[in-house]
Design a protein around this nucleic acid. Structure first.
Lengths: 197, 197
DNA sequence: ACGACCTCTTGACAGTGTCAACCAATCGGG
DNA sequence: CCCGATTGGTTGACACTGTCAAGAGGTCGT
């Protein structure tokens, strides 16, 4: 196998597996075998089992940051809701990455400075956004609380959608975009631009 | 070891371990050894490794339901915020249980009807509460959206607090109750009773 | 008294992550 | 042009895991 492609093969297979079965059953040897390679080959691309998760997490944060920026770039009617939608959409489209990104036991931002930087970048854009919509008069505490509220709402929604308990309690979620929008409305975080509320 | 006490010993040790290190490193044999018993002894109390998680989850939901009911029973000034506080408080106080309860790969409500029933009960009280505060004129969709919003906000907040990324981005959360209250205020889910908003 | 349980033990098996040593190709500089 | 180092891969071993199987020693109802 030519250089670097084994790395990508393993990474891709791992993400796929995690999306379907969660990170915990993931077996180093199994992905190696699936790639048609000896059980030790991946060790030359990832120092550890944790190394795989670290790589997935980095890839995930890059995709995530891009998705966040993309959601705001179109000058949407309701940027807050658009951000929420982008967050949930990312989690659903890349659940393999998402499941790893927020599991500090698998790979912590403390271990890898690159990860920490990507992490800061992600939530830097959120805080900047909140500062903008609240205006210059807003206190640091208000900005902090609003950003936390948005983040928690998005994260909770994404987690509940991925892990399934929503289906069991409020019925199957067929159109998650509609759900996100009505949730944004029912909570106070929507910020419609043109049409009055 | 007298009957039933081994079960409790193992359960307690497992919850403690999970609270500190997460569920994935938990070793059947290790807890057995820590309890001073052979590696197969716990098998007579839990059919599987999954069986341990199932038991923890059931115990967790019982504690959780009690905490929710307790939060509303005091007729608090702002019942929505009280509920939010109780949710987050439960997660922080019982992170060993909480970490297992929302991990369908460890133990799914599909496997155990008892778990499914406890689960339904939990979120039944939430939906009932929302129906009450929105009044009889509220549509099913509004109730559904509001309940989902509250649940997602609480769950997201709890998850982020437990898994730590909040510390890294908005600074260490020393007083989480104050944070929860200001988040409830910044989002629209607070429902103050007596004093005007 | 005796067979059926319940709790626990010992022993084995396949599968896991990881360490160590070895092998083959590739490539830059003398 | 050759040669040593680096890179990507292999095989073999180790301790550890969850789980199956068989059995040991009590306790209890009949």
């Amino acid at each position: 196998m030519s250089p670097q492609t084994l790395r990508e093969t393993v990474l891709k297979a791992a993400v796929e597996y995690i999306a379907d079965h969660g990170p915990d059953g993931l077996s180093f040897r199994q992905v190696a075998q699936a790639a048609g390679v000896s059980h030790q080959a991946p060790y030359h691309h990832f120092t550890d089992r944790k190394g795989i998760f670290e790589a997935i997490s980095i890839e995930g944060y890059e995709l995530f940051n891009a998705a966040m920026i993309d959601a705001l770039s179109g000058d949407p009617d309701d940027p807050s809701t658009a951000l929420l939608e982008a967050y949930v959409g990312f989690a659903l489209d890349h659940r393999g990455h998402f499941r790893v990104m927020f599991r500090p036991d698998l790979c912590s931002a403390d271990d890898d400075p690159a990860l920490a930087q990507l992490h800061d970048q992600s939530f830097g854009t959120l805080v900047d956004f909140v500062r903008e919509i609240l205006g210059p008069k807003a206190s640091i505490n208000d900005i902090r609380a609003r950003a936390t509220a948005m983040w928690a709402l998005a994260h909770g929604l994404a987690t509940l959608l991925i892990d399934g308990p929503l289906d069991d309690t409020i019925g199957p979620v067929t159109n998650w975009r509609a759900l996100v929008r009505s949730v944004a409305e029912q909570s106070g975080i929507a910020t419609p631009k043109k049409r009055g509320r």
